Amino acid sequence: MKKNNNINSPNRKGFTLVELITVISIVAVMAAMIVPNLLKLIEKANNTRDANEAKDLGKLIMSMAALDDDLNLYNPWSTNLDPDGTSSWGYIYVGKDDVRTSSKQMMQMLIDNGYVKEDAAIRRRGGDVPGEGEQQVYKKDTTLMCHSNHNWVAYEIHFRIMPDGNLDISYCATKASTNNLADADADEKATKLFCKFAAGHTDEFAIEHANHNY
């Protein structure tokens, strides 16, 4: 008779508890190494996307200025650049939940180029001059929004006619320490990083004004 050597042998089809714990530990260590790098790559891709969209908007503004001698740059907020108290600069603000412009003209440019829906629910807010106000568009009505989550959470394209007649495009970015972006000023570090991605220059006035508010 043949002796059955498998009667008392242990079942080796599964993992032992020690082997299972070892495998889980190895997977956890690998995840801890990979996930932070993956998040950094995702953030960098979002940073690049924001910067490219900002550059495209800058080109649109330049084209608009070349075709329109009556470019309306009016900024409805109280912070002015000129000694006579008038404002000669405008902006496009791109946040997580809304897009804002300094004039109807700029908002119409976004609508004409597909950044904002034709029938978008535009809200007016603020402004120092009767009949003028900042416009706001919620993200459900726009394809334009800030994609970054860490290095900045909102950015602005500023445009201003210089004394020599040229149109200057500059940028600033916000890395909010508050949940309410309306209460957050431009952040110098975030702005410099944004300008690096966009290959542009900082709006020094916006940064100086923000620093004075601290």
Rank of each mutant, 00 (worst) to 15 (best):
Gly126Ser: 03
Gly58Pro: 11
Tyr91Ile: 00
Leu20Glu: 08
Asn8Ser: 07
Asp164Gln: 13
Ala206Ile: 08
Cys172Asp: 15
Asn213Phe: 09
Asp50Lys: 09
Met33Phe: 14
Arg125Ile: 08
Asn75Trp: 01
Glu134Leu: 01
Ser102Ala: 07
Ile92Tyr: 02
Ala32Ser: 13
Asn37Trp: 08
Ile122Asn: 04
Trp77Ile: 00
Asp183Phe: 05
Leu17Glu: 07
Val27Asp: 03
Met145Glu: 08
Asn80Thr: 10
Phe15Met: 07
Asp203Met: 07
Gln105Cys: 05
Tyr138Ala: 06
Phe159Thr: 02
Thr101Glu: 14
Asn211Met: 10
Ile24Glu: 04
Ile122Ser: 06
Val116His: 01
Ala184Thr: 12
Ile157Val: 13
Asn72Arg: 04
Asn211Lys: 15
Ala45Phe: 04
Thr86Gly: 01
Asp97Met: 10
Val94Pro: 00
Ile21Asp: 10
Leu67Lys: 15
Asp203Trp: 05
Ile169Phe: 04
Asn80Trp: 02
Glu134Gly: 14
Asn46Leu: 04
Thr79Phe: 08
Val23Leu: 10
Leu60Ile: 11
Leu193Phe: 12
Leu73Phe: 03
Val137Met: 07
Glu19Lys: 01
Gly14Leu: 06
Pro130Arg: 12
Ile207Val: 15
Tyr74Ala: 02
Glu208Asp: 12
Leu181Asn: 11
Lys59Tyr: 10
Val99Lys: 02
Asp187Glu: 08
Thr79Arg: 05
Glu43Leu: 11
Cys195Leu: 09
Met109Asn: 04
Asp98Gln: 09
Phe15Leu: 10
Asn149Gln: 06
Gly14Met: 02
Gln108Cys: 03
Phe194Trp: 04
Asp164Gly: 13
Glu43Asn: 11
Leu17Asp: 07
Lys13Cys: 01
Ile111Leu: 06
Tyr138Met: 07
His212Asn: 12
Asn113Tyr: 01
Met145Tyr: 09
Gly165Val: 11
Asp69Pro: 09
Arg49Leu: 12
Ala173Lys: 05
Tyr138Lys: 09
Tyr93Arg: 05
Thr191Lys: 06
Ile34Gln: 10
Ser102Val: 01
Leu181Met: 14
Ala186Trp: 09
Ile169Tyr: 04
His147Pro: 01
Ala45Met: 08
Met109His: 03
Gly85Val: 01
Val99Ser: 03
Ser78Glu: 09
Ala32Arg: 07
Pro163Ala: 11
Phe205Thr: 13
Arg123Tyr: 11
Arg49Asp: 10
Ile92Trp: 03
Thr48Phe: 09
Asn113Trp: 00
Phe15His: 04
Met64Ala: 15
Ile61Asp: 09
Ala206Gly: 10
Glu204Val: 13
Glu53Leu: 09
Pro130Thr: 12
Asn5Lys: 02
Val23Tyr: 10
Asn179Leu: 13
Asp112Phe: 02
Leu73Met: 10
Leu38Lys: 00
Ile207Asp: 11
Asp187His: 07
Ser177Pro: 05
Lys44Phe: 11
Thr142Glu: 03
Leu39Lys: 12
Ala186Arg: 06
Ala120Gly: 07
Gly90Met: 01
Thr178Phe: 07
Lys192Gln: 15
Gln105Ile: 02
Lys192Asn: 15
Leu41Ala: 14
Asp68Leu: 15
Val35Gly: 04
Asn149Cys: 00
Arg124Glu: 09
Val29Cys: 08
Asp164Ala: 12
Met64Asn: 14
Lys104Ile: 08
Lys3Pro: 02
